[in-house]
Amino acid sequence: MASRLPIARAARQFASSAARRPSAPVEFSCRRWQAAPALQSRLFSVSAAVREKQYTEDHEWIEKSADGKTYTLGISEYAAHALGDVVYIELPQIDLEVSESDAIGAVESVKSASDINTPVSGTVTEVNKVLEEKPAQINKDPEGEGWIAKIAVTEEPTGKLMTEEEYKAFTED
């Protein structure tokens, strides 16, 4: 039965940890909670020299290019598993200007259109065309061949980013 499928369980966990993220700078119309101070977490400051994957609480990863000008973005193994079989990926347009936390595309799986949000601001320079034809690639290798887009950064990300270890702890939480 559906509710007992591992995917449903995983989706629940996925969703629950996603919700623990501090309020995003998205426009809402309610002052009541908009006024609440956003927890700008800068605990994990990033050294530009380090080239390793960093993870968001939205279960996305980014990786800086060697020249430091571009970030590659994708969804984490954890997210890919939680989403279930991906049947379509709506990729952003090349040259699209994006701001941190914008929805830049969406992934469809199990009747759900799930937004992909960018943790970095900049311009989309490349998208993974392979995913258009083979969306299942994102389930097979979400943190490698299943990357989604490359973004030329205009400013360094300000949101909370985690190392692989920290992210692992976060998802096990």
């Binding site: 509710s3 449903a8 989706a11 629940r12 969703a15 629950s16 919700a19 623990r20 199990v110 009747k111």
Partner: peptide, 13 residues
């Protein structure tokens, strides 16, 4: 609803 409360079956139930 908040994603925390979400499952694909909850409201069909």
């Amino acid at each position: 609803c908040p994603p925390t409360d979400f499952t694909r079956d909850k409201h069909a139930e």
